[in-house]
């Protein structure tokens, strides 16, 4: 990466010798990982809906899987954006929908109910990651962190507001001309 970054510099520009630690936290990295996972899963749901419904004994629900795919991709894009928290919250809501859909498929007459149970376990695990990550980000971005104070004494006018008011008032151009 440093090599590529340095290629774009001109001769006299500083080049990276060694990099310091990234300001990205583990919670940021987890959100990014979940975002990419979401986009990957959504793409699979969109493009291979028939295979998925066959594997889960949910034939005839291909449309629903594709809609879920679009939802996953959108949540993934949000999780990769600056508003990671909104992305993770939408993922958690989506996890709930996934669980409801899978529970509906967990019928005695479903020959693939073993796969459904496996899918439920996977969704459960990912939901826990989503919730944990959302909680960590909420703490990290909380504007209440640190000392709260007001600045009622910071006028910026050493001689006071009354002296400052209009001190730089410009003469109207006509007056200035005369």
């Amino acid at each position: 990466m440093n090599f590529l970054a340095n290629v774009a510099r001109s001769k006299g520009d500083p080049k990276i010798v060694s990099s310091g630690p990234s300001v990205r936290t583990p919670a940021d990295r987890m959100a990014r990982a979940l975002g990419w996972f979401s986009i990957g899963l959504g793409t699979v749901e969109l493009l291979a809906a028939r295979r998925l419904t066959r594997a889960l004994g949910m034939r005839g629900r291909e449309g629903l899987i594709r809609v879920f795919g679009v939802r996953e991709i959108m949540a993934g894009v949000m999780s990769l954006s600056v508003d990671k928290q909104a992305g993770l919250k939408s993922r958690i809501a989506g996890d709930g929908l996934d669980i409801l859909a899978l529970l509906a498929a967990l019928r005695f007459d479903n020959p693939r109910k073993g796969n459904v149970v496996l899918a439920l376990l996977m969704v459960g695990a990912v939901t826990m990651l989503d919730v944990r990550s959302a909680q960590d980000l909420a703490v990290q971005h909380d504007p209440k962190r640190g000392r709260r104070r007001l600045y009622p004494d910071r006028s910026g006018f050493p001689k006071g507001i009354a002296m400052a008011k209009g001190a730089a008032r410009r003469l109207p151009s006509r007056a200035a001309a005369s």
């Binding site: 006299g12 500083p14 010798v17 310091g20 630690p21 990234s22 300001v23 600056v82």
Partner: peptide, 13 residues
């Protein structure tokens, strides 16, 4: 995105 680091770089010339 959201990744700024305090790096060691060569001096400007």
């Amino acid at each position: 995105k959201e990744d700024i680091r305090c790096d060691t770089v060569t001096d400007p010339e």
